[in-house]
């Protein structure tokens, strides 16, 4: 078993921890932080799963030398930037929610929304 595989297994464990945080934490910002951990760990997984010890950066390749696989690197490079944009957007929505409901607690926000909905209906 190679080091890369073992490390990618650890990154799956990190994704698991992030998802647990995403579900169990009630604070909206903590949820976003967990999402961030999941993002980073997923990127790590993609890069690590093709890693072999002794890989060199795929720059100026010459035949006969062992290089890292460029494909997953190129794919995750764009996703890092997109994660940032999406994170900024979700932080903005969190700010809007906090302005309206004065709490970061998701369960209380849900209660409020339900109450507002019922008031509107009746």
């Amino acid at each position: 078993m190679s080091t890369g595989l073992l490390a990618s297994a650890i990154s799956v464990v990190i994704v698991c921890i992030g998802v647990l945080g995403l579900i169990l934490k009630r604070n909206l910002l903590m949820k976003l932080l967990s999402l961030n951990i999941v993002n980073t760990a997923t990127i790590l997984f993609f890069v690590l799963i093709v890693y072999n010890p002794g890989d060199r950066a795929p720059i100026d390749p010459t035949p006969g030398v062992q290089y890292a696989d460029p494909l997953p690197q190129a794919l995750v490079l764009t996703s890092i930037v997109i994660n940032f944009g999406v994170l900024a957007l979700s932080l903005l929505f969190t700010m809007v929610l906090v302005k309206r409901y004065h709490t970061l607690d998701l369960i209380k926000i849900e209660d409020f929304v339900r109450r507002e909905f019922e008031e509107e209906k009746s």
Binding site: S2, G4, V50, I59, P63, P70
Partner: peptide
């Protein structure tokens, strides 16, 4: 045991052929 994926190997090979791109990640 992992090795460079088939597509990745192709891209590495091609960027060896192209003279003015030496960063294989960029060529992808």
């Amino acid at each position: 045991d992992s090795e460079v994926s088939r597509l990745g190997a192709v891209y590495l090979e091609r960027s060896q052929e192209i003279s003015n791109i030496s960063n294989a990640v960029f060529s992808v």
